[in-house]
Write a protein that binds this DNA or RNA. Structure first.
Length: 517
RNA sequence: GGCCCGUUCGUCUAGGGGUUAGGACAUCAGAUUUUCAUUCUGGUAACAGGGGUUCGAUUCCCCUACGGGCUACCA
């Protein structure tokens, strides 16, 4: 293995829909690995399947990566490098793939096949009734319509006549294929288990397998970091590198464990988000569904109020763990700490609760001023105009209580408006004549108070309670309800100080006049 | 079905031939805040099962079970 080679990795999504969080994590690991080793990170679009192409999907992928801060330094949407173009349909039009298919045919590692889709489906059905699975392989290809069974003349005639054909790999009959995976160690597969995969489709497009190998080779990719769903086809890829004579520069493989559904079984899919109530995608959007062809809306982490740093941090820890117990990482720290060897082998069930916790951690790291800058526009949207200083004070009081910045907005109503209602549970439990009288005398006492601070109002509150012969603790929460309407909230007398004497006294009177009437 | 990959608290994971099997989320309890929450402290909770190898296995090997992936002219 050539370890002196420059590290070049790629993220190669297929634009068949919105990029989901599993894809984002694959991109992230590629990015971290590239940065860690001072290498290059490339975005290549694998759009060889023209039928499943979804308009706008490519743009979505680019925007999602940008929001996450996972920026390739080469490739579609991020500026061309020496290996342009980076979209496989463009590369096909530039004629990069056909020559290699020809080379494989010349060297006897591939052949033309004329069997139609219908014919092959029939074969599959026939095998199924016999309780077997059909595979186009060393055993069956002798009985099918291909350049191995047809005469050279007939092959030429058919092609000249414009008959549709595909090019298939000629997998050796009896060979052990072994390759080293950085995460899994040695993986061994016998060639008899492989089928003669199509390399070139009848529409003239290469399949993933050919395009992928050719592009990784010509883009000088040093490490292939991709999802575990590719593990079964890795032996085919190894064979192709060998057939093409590129074994010396074959990239090292690292197959990532899958992200699984939090409940039940299976890998995380599109639908799970709506069903379980968490986003599966980074950004909210609407794209055509590949299967139905109908437009489909989906929600994203961004719109649900998550910070990209939190999202990325969560994703990084889902399947990877550093050598210490550290869980909160800046992007720079992630780059520093990341290594493929520490990626786990088994699939990880996604935990939406922990993701929220990550967001909370990042929210708390923000200054009151930064949070206020987020809160201000949200308030404006609701027709509330206020000063940055007041918004900052709100954030200071509320930030310990929330996980998302929108909760700041949702919970700050009483900073601007008198309560329209009062927490019924607390009222039912605490409101009586004696306490009502207390609130009245408290209003009077507050009214006569000189200096208005958290400390003076608290002292005044306690003194008034004592005079009335009431345990302060008994009326504390009730007082909170009287001035805010809610049973819970920030540190009480800090809130009192911020709201000011006039407001507090007025709300106290309102409460006495409203509650229980 | 076949092939491949995997299996440590409910979840994400650390660890690794001899450990009180560690951390985080969640959960529970106590303290503090004379309120709710925050915060702090503490607790419950795991090596899938069976065989080996070994003085000793959760760690290494094998089998079984379970989970996952792939099995298209999709990626």
């Amino acid at each position: 293995m050539d370890n002196t080679r420059r590290v070049r990795v790629r993220f190669a999504p297929s634009p068949t829909g919105p990029l989901h969080m599993g894809g984002v994590r694959t991109a992230l690991y590629n990015y971290l690995f590239a940065k860690k080793h001072g290498g290059d990170f490339i975005l290549r679009i694998e759009d060889t399947d023209q039928e499943r192409l979804v308009p706008g999907a490519e743009e979505y992928i680019i925007n999602a990566l940008k929001w996450c801060g996972i920026e390739p330094n080469e490739g579609i949407g991020f500026g061309d490098g020496d290996c342009a173009p980076y979209r496989q349909s463009d590369r096909k039009n530039a004629g990069v793939y056909a020559q290699y298919a020809d080379q494989l045919i010349q060297s006897g590692h591939a052949y033309y096949a004329f069997d139609t889709k219908e014919e092959l489906d029939e074969q599959r059905k026939r095998y199924e009734t016999m309780g077997k699975a059909f595979a186009y392989n060393a055993l069956t290809r002798q009985n099918l319509k291909n350049s191995l069974t047809l005469s050279e003349d007939e092959v030429k005639t058919r092609i000249a006549a414009g008959e549709h054909y595909v090019i298939r790999t000629k997998i050796p009959r009896n060979e052990e294929i072994r390759f080293h995976d950085i995460i899994r160690g040695w993986v061994v597969v016998h060639s008899s288990q492989l089928d003669d995969k199509v390399l070139f489709k009848s529409d003239g497009m290469p399949t993933y397998h050919l395009a992928n190998i050719v592009d990784d080779y010509s883009m000088k990719i040093s490490h292939v970091i991709r999802g575990e769903e590719w593990l079964p086809s890795a032996p085919l890829h190894v064979l192709l590198y060998r057939f093409l004579g590129w074994e010396e520069v074959m990239p090292q493989f690292a197959h990532l464990p899958l992200i699984l559904r939090p409940d039940g079984n299976g890998k995380l899919s599109k639908r799970d988000g709506d069903r379980l109530g968490f986003p599966v995608f980074p950004l909210t959007g609407e794209l055509l569904d590949v299967k139905t062809g109908q437009p489909e809306k989906f929600t994203g982490y961004r719109e649900k109020g998550y910070y990209p740093e939190a999202f990325i941090n969560m994703l990084a820890l889902l399947g990877w763990h550093g050598s210490s117990n550290q869980e909160l990482f800046t992007k720079e720290e992630l780059i520093e700490a990341f290594s493929l060897e520490r990626v786990s082998k088994s699939g990880a069930k996604f935990d939406a609760e922990k993701t929220k916790w990550f967001n909370q951690q990042y929210l708390r790291k923000r200054s009151d001023a930064e949070l206020a800058a987020e809160l201000l526009p949200m308030l404006k949207e609701q027709g509330i105009e206020t000063t940055p200083a007041f918004a900052e004070a709100i954030c200071r009081l509320l930030k310990e209580k929330v996980q998302f910045s929108y909760e700041l907005r949702d919970q700050c109503g009483y900073f601007f408006n008198d309560p329209a209602g009062y927490d019924e549970g607390v009222i039912a439990k605490r409101w009586n004549e004696q306490n009502a009288a207390f609130m009245k005398s408290l209003a009077d006492a507050f009214n006569g108070l000189g200096e208005w601070t958290a400390a003076t109002t608290e002292a005044c509150f306690k003194a008034t309670a004592e005079t009335a012969g009431i345990n302060a603790g008994q009326v504390m929460q009730l007082f909170r309800v009287c001035i805010s309407g809610l049973g819970g909230g920030p540190v009480l007398f800090e809130l009192v100080e911020l709201l000011g004497k006039e407001t507090i006294v007025r709300r106290l009177h309102n409460a006495v006049n409203t509650i229980g009437k």
